[in-house]
Amino acid sequence: MHPRYGTGLGMSLLTVTNVGRRYAMRRGLLARAVTVHAVDGVSLSLERGETLGLVGESGCGKSTTGRLVLGLEAPDGGAVHFDGAPMPAVGDAAWRKLRARMQMVFQDPLGALDRRLPIGVQVAEPLEIHNLLNPSDRPARVIELLGAVGLRPDQAERYPHELSGGQRQRAVLARALATNPDLLVCDEPISALDVSIQAQAMNLLMELQARLGMAILFISHDLRAVRQVSHRIAVMYLGRIVEMGEPDAVLHDPAHPYARALAAAIPHPGLRGQTRPVLQGDPPNPADRPSGCAFHPRCPIAEAICRTSVPALLPRQDGRQVACHAAHRSDAGVHRERAA
């Protein structure tokens, strides 16, 4: 189904260790500043050629995680290592140089493009910035890049508003690929596109990855899209990863009750008749984070301990990582049964 990725030997391309990011948020002049833990103790790693899908509701911190991974923001705690080296300080020369190796694909391609410059000029911009190739060779490279993402050479002359949404996203992708990056962070890359062309865009992404071998962090609220492109997925809830594992496993046998609710929301022709846990309670508010397991007010199987103690993200027997008291206990139970 997917090309197998790195074996995990040696250094990962990207290692994120226990990063956190807090914001002070004020809701009014007379209100107190509230500390919002947008991201709280997230760890993950990414190999060359691998796609990690990051999924969760809006406000769960997945976009902030993307920005931390790229080094666009410095974490308040923890560390990000790229290719074995710590992330340089935001904005310095080393940081700017590193941009050539890690790129971002945005949710809103129209906003990410300069409406006053033709597409070709913008695709060539990373080459100019990082002084790659001879100026005379750049037009050919632009044509090549446009071709790689399925745009015609004559579309280099077009302005962003003259293209369709899907074409704009392809242009953004071409610009991101110009420097042959090792890592691509795609933040909701398809949610602004028509449903009819979302599949096309995802296929293009996978095809490019197979050809160019970059790692992808694919951020989306759409579990189906994430499953289609990812080698592994991580489910986030209120700033923390609650479950991480192989996409089919997480989808067909979710261990965390939140992941179960997400998976159940996907229409499944084959699974009719099964009970579907439905999310109850209020949607999460990052500024008012519940104590203990942040999911407990909405959780159908919450217990006393869930209100007081934050569950750690621990590997189960099958290698899947889950942050849930109940899931770990049942896993331990299964283990005991097996042992018996």
Binding site: Y23, L30, A33
Partner: peptide
């Protein structure tokens, strides 16, 4: 939500009215 985001170190005033 459309609110001001600043790093947390700015502190939290209790009597914001007086502070203002």
């Amino acid at each position: 939500p459309p609110t001001d985001r600043t790093p947390v170190s700015t502190g939290k005033g209790r009597r914001d009215m007086i502070r203002f």
